[in-house]
Amino acid sequence: MRQALSSRLGRAGTGLHRLRARTAPAPEAPEEAGPWGPAPVIEVRALRKTYGTGDAVVRALGGPPDPAGGEPAGVDLVVEQGDYVAVMGSSGSGKSTLMNILGCLDVPTSGRYLLDGIDVGGLDEHQLSLVRNRKIGFVFQSFNLVPRTPALAQVELPLAYAGVKAAERRRRALAALALVGLADRVDHRPNELSGGQQQRVAVARALVTAPAMLLADEPTGNLDSRSTEDVLAVIDRLNASGRTVVLITHEDEVARHAKRVLRLVDGRIVADVRQAAADGPPPALRDPAAFAGHAPTALSGTAGGALR
């Protein structure tokens, strides 16, 4: 267990020994390497998030209170290694809240969240920053690039925080930018890039630390269809190479790239549809010709009908 943890966290620096100490007294944890294969990347149990107190309480995640128990059931979710999950739902359905908690940007009110086998709830501020840095790559709808900073420096930033040496950092950042097709734009600042290019820089920044999973909160929400295709192609290829991907979207066209589609309504998962096997290429790469031939509406039946 300890060895498994330390190897999973990689070079976690000073926080690592404390991390081990915290998680050690949970030997019954289901992520224990055993006959059932590797632990899931994400395991969420009875997750709830509320804002405010008393009458003014807003239940962002976990659904309405159970009439019998008085407490909402909460969200349960398991995402396996290599899966490609699209989370759909209307505004206010709690999908962004779920994503922020999965990305360790926000903390749940109650419930358990195991990321790659580590109980995130027991981590302190410093350990959380290590987790955000090494295990999660986050892509935002509004790109969220650091202003006035060239693309190369943007992508180098997570590596700098991880303590990677300058030469190695540059090499890996250039490789990540090449992967998203921006090798010729390394010196451009965010205001010199198109929206699609900015989002691809953000994707490069998210994947440069080789995180366990890529979280994308409506990555194509602010992009035209051409850029959407570019960004989704990058994400498809990442997933094909084994990276776990969770993305939020409104659009069926985006959701049909995923292997599994979840629908959230009022903070609860109401539908869970698998479109392809977790271990295998994503739908768009399995049979590109057939995928391109299908109209976007072809999937609406399985994905859960009208969304807007």
Binding site: G103, L105, E125, H126, S129, L130, V131, R132, N133, R134, F138, F140, N144, L145, V146, L157, P158, Y161, A162, R205, A206, T209
Partner: peptide, 11 residues
């Protein structure tokens, strides 16, 4: 916020 989201420690 961006810097913290990509793993900048408090220090």
């Amino acid at each position: 916020g961006i810097r913290k989201a990509i793993g900048a420690p408090r220090g």
